[in-house]
Amino acid sequence: MKSLVLVKQVPNADSAFRPNSAGTWVDESNLVFGINDYDRYALEELLRLKDSGKVTEVVALSVGPERAATALRTCLATGADRAIHVQDAALQGAEPLALARVIQAAIKDEGFGLILAGLQADDDNYGQTGPLLARLLDRPCATAAMSLALVDGTTVRVERELENNRLQVVDLKLPAVITVQTGINEPRYASLKGIMAAKKKEIRTVALGDLGLDPAAVGGAAARLRTLRIAPPPKGKGAEILKGSPDDVARELLKRIREKTGVI
């Protein structure tokens, strides 16, 4: 069975985030990009299935600008067999559903049995690409997997994370789309050998035209959703901020802890 992992390249959490000049997104020029955390767990899940002989091939796909090739290269070095990079300037600002349509077109002739995505991307925090794609493909879907296992060649059993430390166990008929929650496994890192081997692996780069898609219909120009502005989150009641040397603030903290909590 062939398997696919969707990989997005996103800014690292500790990058220096600033709004762009229009105030509609972050300024990307000072950001350091890496593989979306959730997607690393998704890739690992497939690599394990491959290690145990249950899937034959692991393909990584990313839709994104030129820099996204670095993320795919890392996937190859970590163990993915080949990669597909959909790169087209027209996709800047494309809507999530359009992105799902692009992915659908890019995998049309592949016949993947298992498609994994991250539960959410750390930039847009949508958590919808997996289910959108599943609906377009008319295949079953389960989100927030904390475990998945192939029951036999036709069924995958998924444990979905619910609230309050509960899991929903659900069986899906293959092909199926599953989104992965962090903590499902311990992702491996690329080995030196893997990095060398990756140099010989294929990244196929395709543009919208190659997929038979009209850039005017799926690209950013066709997007209905528009971000009007971004802003820092509302501050809530806001904490009293203590200043001074570590010993000074420790003394002040202790004083407040004594007055307010009575635990000391």
């Binding site: 559903l97 919808q128 609906r135 989100t143 979905r160 619910l162």
Partner: peptide, 23 residues
């Protein structure tokens, strides 16, 4: 925006030809 609400909304959205706005 519950585990199940978040699971089903994008499935339905895609069926209706729109994206979802989550959370």
């Amino acid at each position: 925006h519950t585990p199940n609400g978040w699971d089903v909304a994008p499935l339905v959205a895609a069926g209706l030809g729109v994206s979802a706005l989550t959370d």
